[in-house]
């Protein structure tokens, strides 16, 4: 259980106790104060509780642990530990370019107004496939659409190491083409090693010293 969920759990428990009180003693609603109490306990507080719980669930569903809890994602989780800095996810994960406990979501959400919810909606689809569909092999799992540079530039745009790196100036318009998504960061023979789960078996793995992940 994550600490962030303790408050919603406690709040839900209190609301449930109040609801149970009304369910067991509906005659409380005869008095004026009981009517107000019933409205608060059976209408206002449950709505707040659902809202708090939903936020906790959404926050939790962005965790690396959550994403890797499906067996088919194991190899993708392993690919974060490949001891090769040309492997993009591994380099980001091992060097803390992304928060390790939210590694998957940081790169695989859409940085748009409803991007988080779109990502979660895709996640619901994945769960349905996991339990009711045909689970593909890890190597056969592909993105729905080509990776958008917007997600990379959410962090890298404006950073000195990105804008001044010599490989990013092979052509004068390289950065502007990347910014407009005409030149993909990953599919242009630049950062092409991503998860590569098909070859994960033979890869050398990095072993973190004090990190339990």
């Amino acid at each position: 259980m994550q600490n962030a969920a303790i408050i919603p759990i406690l709040f839900t428990a209190i609301v449930a106790v109040l609801g149970l009180l009304i369910a067991m003693r509906p005659e409380l609603t005869i008095a004026r104060g009981g009517k107000i109490f019933a409205f608060v306990a059976l209408c206002i507080l449950p709505v707040l509780s659902v809202w708090a719980g939903f936020n906790a669930q959404i926050e939790r569903s962005t965790s690396t642990q959550f994403c890797l809890s499906c067996h088919v994602m194991n190899d993708f989780g392993q690919s974060l530990y490949v001891d090769d800095k040309s492997y993009l996810p591994a380099a980001h994960f091992q060097n803390n370019f992304v928060p390790r406990d939210h590694a998957c979501f940081t790169c695989h959400t859409d940085y748009t107004m409803f991007g988080d919810y779109k990502a979660k909606w895709r996640g619901v689809h994945h769960v349905i496939v996991q339990y009711f569909g045909t689970i593909p092999k890890p190597a056969d799992i592909k993105l729905y659409t080509p990776y958008n540079n917007r997600e990379c530039l959410h962090c890298h745009a404006g950073s000195r190491v990105y804008e001044e790196a010599a490989p990013h100036h092979k052509t004068p318009d390289m950065l502007s083409r990347a910014a407009s998504n005409q030149l993909s960061c990953m599919n242009s023979d630049c950062h092409e090693f991503v998860h590569d789960v098909a070859d994960i078996g033979g890869a050398t793995m990095w072993k973190p010293k004090a990190d339990g992940q």
Partner: peptide, 8 residues
């Protein structure tokens, strides 16, 4: 459901 970190 809040006690368990899992898609289910």
């Amino acid at each position: 459901s809040l006690l368990w970190t899992h898609p289910l």
